[in-house]
Protein backbone atom coordinates (compact mmCIF):
# COMPACT_ATOMS: atom_id res chain seq x y z
CA UNK A 1 0.00 0.00 0.00
CA UNK A 2 1.58 3.23 -1.07
CA UNK A 3 1.25 6.48 0.82
CA UNK A 4 2.43 8.74 -1.96
CA UNK A 5 2.21 8.38 -5.71
CA UNK A 6 3.36 10.79 -8.37
CA UNK A 7 2.08 10.27 -11.89
CA UNK A 8 3.73 12.05 -14.80
CA UNK A 9 4.21 15.20 -12.77
CA UNK A 10 5.76 18.19 -14.59
CA UNK A 11 6.54 21.74 -13.63
CA UNK A 12 8.09 24.41 -15.83
CA UNK A 13 9.65 27.72 -14.81
CA UNK A 14 10.46 30.22 -17.50
CA UNK A 15 11.38 27.89 -20.34
CA UNK A 16 13.15 25.45 -18.10
CA UNK A 17 11.67 22.19 -16.96
CA UNK A 18 12.32 21.85 -13.26
CA UNK A 19 10.40 18.59 -13.08
CA UNK A 20 9.80 16.54 -16.19
CA UNK A 21 7.23 13.74 -16.09
CA UNK A 22 8.27 12.26 -12.79
CA UNK A 23 6.46 9.16 -11.59
CA UNK A 24 7.25 7.43 -8.36
CA UNK A 25 5.64 5.45 -5.57
CA UNK A 26 6.49 5.62 -1.89
CA UNK A 27 5.30 2.57 0.09
CA UNK A 28 3.77 3.22 3.48
CA UNK A 29 6.09 2.90 6.47
CA UNK A 30 9.45 3.02 4.77
CA UNK A 31 12.32 5.46 4.65
CA UNK A 32 12.53 6.67 1.10
CA UNK A 33 15.50 8.54 -0.30
CA UNK A 34 15.03 11.30 -2.84
CA UNK A 35 18.42 11.87 -4.43
CA UNK A 36 19.76 14.04 -7.12
CA UNK A 37 22.48 16.55 -7.89
CA UNK A 38 21.94 20.21 -7.15
CA UNK A 39 19.20 21.69 -9.30
CA UNK A 40 17.81 18.29 -10.25
CA UNK A 41 14.29 19.26 -9.16
CA UNK A 42 14.16 17.69 -5.71
CA UNK A 43 12.94 20.77 -3.90
CA UNK A 44 10.39 21.55 -6.61
CA UNK A 45 9.09 17.98 -6.38
CA UNK A 46 8.79 18.25 -2.62
CA UNK A 47 7.08 21.62 -2.87
CA UNK A 48 4.48 20.10 -5.14
CA UNK A 49 3.91 17.21 -2.74
CA UNK A 50 3.45 19.61 0.15
CA UNK A 51 1.06 21.75 -1.86
CA UNK A 52 3.29 24.84 -1.73
CA UNK A 53 3.37 24.91 -5.53
CA UNK A 54 1.22 23.06 -7.98
CA UNK A 55 2.19 20.87 -10.92
CA UNK A 56 1.57 22.11 -14.46
CA UNK A 57 0.46 18.61 -15.36
CA UNK A 58 0.24 15.18 -13.77
CA UNK A 59 -1.27 13.98 -10.53
CA UNK A 60 -0.10 13.54 -6.99
CA UNK A 61 -1.92 11.14 -4.68
CA UNK A 62 -1.41 11.21 -0.96
CA UNK A 63 -2.87 8.29 0.95
CA UNK A 64 -5.14 7.58 -1.99
CA UNK A 65 -6.45 11.14 -2.28
CA UNK A 66 -5.53 13.49 -5.05
CA UNK A 67 -3.60 16.49 -3.76
CA UNK A 68 -5.34 19.61 -4.92
CA UNK A 69 -4.92 23.18 -3.83
CA UNK A 70 -5.47 22.54 -0.16
CA UNK A 71 -2.41 22.00 1.94
CA UNK A 72 -2.35 18.44 3.25
CA UNK A 73 -2.16 18.40 7.04
CA UNK A 74 -0.90 14.84 7.18
CA UNK A 75 2.51 15.97 5.96
CA UNK A 76 5.38 17.18 8.09
CA UNK A 77 7.97 19.15 6.20
CA UNK A 78 11.43 20.31 7.11
CA UNK A 79 12.67 22.30 4.12
CA UNK A 80 16.27 22.72 3.15
CA UNK A 81 15.86 26.49 3.18
CA UNK A 82 14.70 26.66 6.74
CA UNK A 83 14.63 29.29 9.38
CA UNK A 84 12.66 30.60 12.28
CA UNK A 85 11.46 34.00 13.42
CA UNK A 86 14.48 35.32 15.24
CA UNK A 87 12.77 37.38 17.86
CA UNK A 88 10.38 34.75 19.16
CA UNK A 89 11.11 32.41 22.01
CA UNK A 90 11.58 28.77 21.03
CA UNK A 91 8.50 27.76 22.99
CA UNK A 92 6.24 30.43 21.49
CA UNK A 93 7.56 29.73 18.05
CA UNK A 94 6.99 25.99 18.15
CA UNK A 95 3.59 26.51 19.73
CA UNK A 96 2.69 28.84 16.88
CA UNK A 97 3.83 26.38 14.22
CA UNK A 98 1.98 23.54 15.95
CA UNK A 99 -1.18 25.64 16.09
CA UNK A 100 -0.84 26.40 12.38
CA UNK A 101 -0.83 22.66 11.83
CA UNK A 102 -4.23 22.57 13.46
CA UNK A 103 -3.35 21.38 16.96
CA UNK A 104 -5.32 22.73 19.90
CA UNK A 105 -3.40 24.79 22.45
CA UNK A 106 -3.67 21.99 24.98
CA UNK A 107 -2.52 19.28 22.61
CA UNK A 108 0.26 21.42 21.19
CA UNK A 109 1.68 22.12 24.64
CA UNK A 110 1.59 18.44 25.56
CA UNK A 111 3.44 17.40 22.43
CA UNK A 112 5.88 20.23 22.77
CA UNK A 113 6.82 19.23 26.31
CA UNK A 114 7.35 15.67 25.14
CA UNK A 115 9.63 16.65 22.29
CA UNK A 116 11.63 19.24 24.20
CA UNK A 117 12.41 16.61 26.77
CA UNK A 118 13.15 14.00 24.15
CA UNK A 119 15.55 16.13 22.12
CA UNK A 120 17.28 17.46 25.18
CA UNK A 121 16.26 21.09 24.74
CA UNK A 122 14.99 21.82 28.22
CA UNK A 123 17.51 24.52 28.95
CA UNK A 124 16.76 26.22 25.66
CA UNK A 125 13.06 26.54 25.17
CA UNK A 126 12.69 29.86 26.97
CA UNK A 127 15.47 31.40 24.91
CA UNK A 128 14.96 33.45 21.81
CA UNK A 129 15.54 31.77 18.50
CA UNK A 130 18.39 34.12 17.64
CA UNK A 131 20.32 32.85 20.67
CA UNK A 132 20.24 29.25 19.47
CA UNK A 133 23.20 27.51 17.89
CA UNK A 134 22.66 26.14 14.42
CA UNK A 135 22.26 22.60 15.69
CA UNK A 136 19.79 23.72 18.34
CA UNK A 137 17.63 25.57 15.88
CA UNK A 138 17.80 22.55 13.60
CA UNK A 139 16.37 20.44 16.39
CA UNK A 140 13.65 23.01 16.95
CA UNK A 141 12.82 22.78 13.26
CA UNK A 142 12.70 19.04 13.47
CA UNK A 143 10.19 19.30 16.30
CA UNK A 144 8.11 21.68 14.20
CA UNK A 145 7.91 19.13 11.42
CA UNK A 146 6.88 16.16 13.58
CA UNK A 147 4.80 17.73 16.33
CA UNK A 148 1.47 17.05 14.62
CA UNK A 149 2.30 13.35 14.09
CA UNK A 150 2.30 13.38 10.30
CA UNK A 151 1.78 10.23 8.24
CA UNK A 152 4.41 11.43 5.80
CA UNK A 153 7.49 13.25 7.04
CA UNK A 154 9.56 15.03 4.43
CA UNK A 155 13.09 15.93 5.45
CA UNK A 156 15.23 17.96 3.08
CA UNK A 157 18.90 17.65 4.06
CA UNK A 158 18.03 17.18 7.73
CA UNK A 159 21.60 16.67 8.92
CA UNK A 160 23.32 19.62 7.32
CA UNK A 161 25.01 21.61 10.05
CA UNK A 162 24.52 19.01 12.79
CA UNK A 163 27.37 17.63 14.88
CA UNK A 164 27.74 13.82 15.04
CA UNK A 165 25.95 13.57 18.39
CA UNK A 166 22.91 15.46 17.22
CA UNK A 167 23.01 13.69 13.87
CA UNK A 168 22.69 10.39 15.70
CA UNK A 169 19.95 11.80 17.91
CA UNK A 170 17.90 12.78 14.87
CA UNK A 171 18.70 9.51 13.09
CA UNK A 172 17.38 7.59 16.07
CA UNK A 173 14.24 9.69 16.08
CA UNK A 174 13.75 9.01 12.39
CA UNK A 175 14.01 5.25 12.95
CA UNK A 176 11.69 5.46 15.93
CA UNK A 177 9.10 7.36 13.92
CA UNK A 178 9.42 4.83 11.12
CA UNK A 179 8.81 2.01 13.58
CA UNK A 180 5.71 3.84 14.73
CA UNK A 181 4.39 3.80 11.18
CA UNK A 182 5.51 7.18 9.83
CA UNK A 183 6.69 7.19 6.25
CA UNK A 184 9.78 9.28 5.74
CA UNK A 185 10.79 10.95 2.51
CA UNK A 186 14.40 11.90 2.84
CA UNK A 187 16.01 14.23 0.36
CA UNK A 188 19.75 14.59 0.23
CA UNK A 189 22.86 14.53 -1.87
CA UNK A 190 24.89 12.88 0.89
CA UNK A 191 25.05 9.35 -0.43
CA UNK A 192 26.48 7.55 2.59
CA UNK A 193 23.40 8.64 4.52
CA UNK A 194 21.17 7.04 1.94
CA UNK A 195 22.96 3.71 2.27
CA UNK A 196 22.71 3.95 6.01
CA UNK A 197 19.12 5.05 6.43
CA UNK A 198 17.01 4.49 3.37
CA UNK A 199 15.23 1.36 2.30
CA UNK A 200 14.07 2.65 -1.04
CA UNK A 201 15.25 5.50 -3.19
CA UNK A 202 14.71 7.43 -6.35
CA UNK A 203 17.40 9.25 -8.25
CA UNK A 204 16.37 12.39 -10.08
CA UNK A 205 18.48 14.17 -12.65
CA UNK A 206 17.46 17.16 -14.75
CA UNK A 207 13.90 16.81 -13.56
CA UNK A 208 13.64 13.19 -14.62
CA UNK A 209 13.38 9.97 -12.64
CA UNK A 210 16.49 8.04 -13.72
CA UNK A 211 16.59 5.26 -11.14
CA UNK A 212 14.14 3.95 -8.59
CA UNK A 213 13.98 0.93 -6.34
CA UNK A 214 15.12 -0.88 -3.23
CA UNK A 215 18.51 0.45 -2.10
CA UNK A 216 20.12 -2.98 -1.61
CA UNK A 217 18.76 -4.28 -4.87
CA UNK A 218 20.04 -1.27 -6.72
CA UNK A 219 23.45 -1.83 -5.26
CA UNK A 220 23.33 -5.52 -6.17
CA UNK A 221 22.22 -4.85 -9.68
CA UNK A 222 25.06 -2.41 -10.13
CA UNK A 223 27.79 -4.68 -8.81
CA UNK A 224 30.81 -4.93 -11.02
CA UNK A 225 32.25 -8.27 -9.93
CA UNK A 226 34.77 -6.70 -7.59
CA UNK A 227 36.29 -8.60 -4.66
CA UNK A 228 38.47 -7.55 -1.79
CA UNK A 229 40.88 -9.66 0.23
CA UNK A 230 42.58 -8.66 3.48
CA UNK A 231 45.39 -10.87 4.66
CA UNK A 232 47.81 -10.56 7.58
CA UNK A 233 50.58 -12.76 6.22
CA UNK A 234 52.66 -12.16 3.16
CA UNK A 235 50.70 -12.08 -0.05
CA UNK A 236 52.10 -13.80 -3.11
CA UNK A 237 53.74 -11.52 -5.64
CA UNK A 238 51.32 -12.54 -8.35
CA UNK A 239 47.83 -13.94 -8.58
CA UNK A 240 46.58 -15.82 -11.63
CA UNK A 241 45.97 -13.55 -14.60
CA UNK A 242 42.31 -14.37 -14.81
CA UNK A 243 41.87 -12.83 -11.34
CA UNK A 244 42.78 -9.40 -12.74
CA UNK A 245 44.29 -7.80 -9.68
CA UNK A 246 43.51 -4.13 -9.96
CA UNK A 247 44.81 -2.63 -6.77
CA UNK A 248 47.08 -3.51 -3.86
CA UNK A 249 47.22 -1.36 -0.76
CA UNK A 250 49.30 -2.87 2.01
CA UNK A 251 47.42 -5.94 3.11
CA UNK A 252 44.44 -5.24 0.91
CA UNK A 253 44.05 -6.54 -2.64
CA UNK A 254 41.20 -5.89 -5.04
CA UNK A 255 40.29 -8.16 -7.93
CA UNK A 256 38.04 -7.82 -10.90
CA UNK A 257 38.14 -11.44 -12.15
CA UNK A 258 36.82 -12.97 -15.37
CA UNK A 259 33.05 -13.34 -15.30
CA UNK A 260 33.12 -17.12 -14.89
CA UNK A 261 35.13 -16.89 -11.66
CA UNK A 262 32.89 -16.68 -8.61
CA UNK A 263 33.72 -15.79 -5.02
CA UNK A 264 33.92 -19.48 -4.11
CA UNK A 265 36.59 -19.98 -6.77
CA UNK A 266 38.66 -17.18 -5.35
CA UNK A 267 38.34 -18.41 -1.77
CA UNK A 268 39.25 -21.94 -2.75
CA UNK A 269 42.38 -20.66 -4.43
CA UNK A 270 43.43 -18.61 -1.40
CA UNK A 271 42.97 -21.58 0.91
CA UNK A 272 44.82 -23.92 -1.39
CA UNK A 273 47.71 -21.48 -1.57
CA UNK A 274 47.77 -21.19 2.21
CA UNK A 275 46.96 -17.49 2.23
CA UNK A 276 45.51 -16.44 5.54
CA UNK A 277 42.15 -14.81 4.89
CA UNK A 278 41.38 -12.17 7.48
CA UNK A 279 38.55 -10.69 5.46
CA UNK A 280 37.08 -11.40 2.09
CA UNK A 281 34.01 -9.87 0.51
CA UNK A 282 32.42 -8.95 -2.72
CA UNK A 283 32.44 -5.18 -3.14
CA UNK A 284 29.06 -3.65 -3.86
CA UNK A 285 29.29 -0.30 -5.46
CA UNK A 286 28.44 2.53 -3.11
CA UNK A 287 25.35 4.56 -3.85
CA UNK A 288 27.83 7.34 -4.44
CA UNK A 289 29.38 5.45 -7.37
CA UNK A 290 25.98 4.51 -8.73
CA UNK A 291 24.87 8.08 -8.38
CA UNK A 292 27.83 9.47 -10.30
CA UNK A 293 27.62 6.77 -12.94
CA UNK A 294 23.89 7.15 -13.46
CA UNK A 295 23.98 10.93 -13.50
CA UNK A 296 26.80 10.98 -16.03
CA UNK A 297 25.03 8.45 -18.19
CA UNK A 298 21.80 10.39 -18.14
CA UNK A 299 23.65 13.64 -18.84
CA UNK A 300 25.11 12.10 -21.99
CA UNK A 301 21.77 10.78 -23.13
Amino acid sequence: MSILTLQQVSKTFQNYKAVDQISLTVPRGCIYGLLGPNGAGKTTTIRMITGITHPDSGDIFLGGNRVNKTIPSSIGYMPEERGLYKKMSVWDHLLYLARLKGLSVQKAKEELKFWIERLDMKSWYTKKVEELSKGMSQKAQFIASVIHKPDLLILDEPFSGLDPINTNLIKDEISRLRDMGTTILFSTHRMEQVEEICERMVLINKGKNVLEGDVEEIRKSHRQHLFELVSENDLPGRFPDEFHEIQRLGKKVRFNPEPHIQSADLLRYFLNEGIEVNAFREQFPSINDIFIETVEKSNQA
Binding site: T50, I52, Y77, P79, E81, R82, L97, Q141, S145
Partner: peptide
Protein backbone atom coordinates in the same frame (compact mmCIF):
# COMPACT_ATOMS: atom_id res chain seq x y z
CA UNK B 1 13.87 31.20 5.34
CA UNK B 2 10.97 30.75 7.71
CA UNK B 3 8.52 31.13 4.90
CA UNK B 4 8.71 27.63 3.48
CA UNK B 5 8.05 26.15 6.90
CA UNK B 6 4.98 28.32 7.28
CA UNK B 7 3.82 27.65 3.74
CA UNK B 8 3.70 23.93 4.44
CA UNK B 9 0.89 24.78 6.86
Amino acid sequence: RIVEVILSS
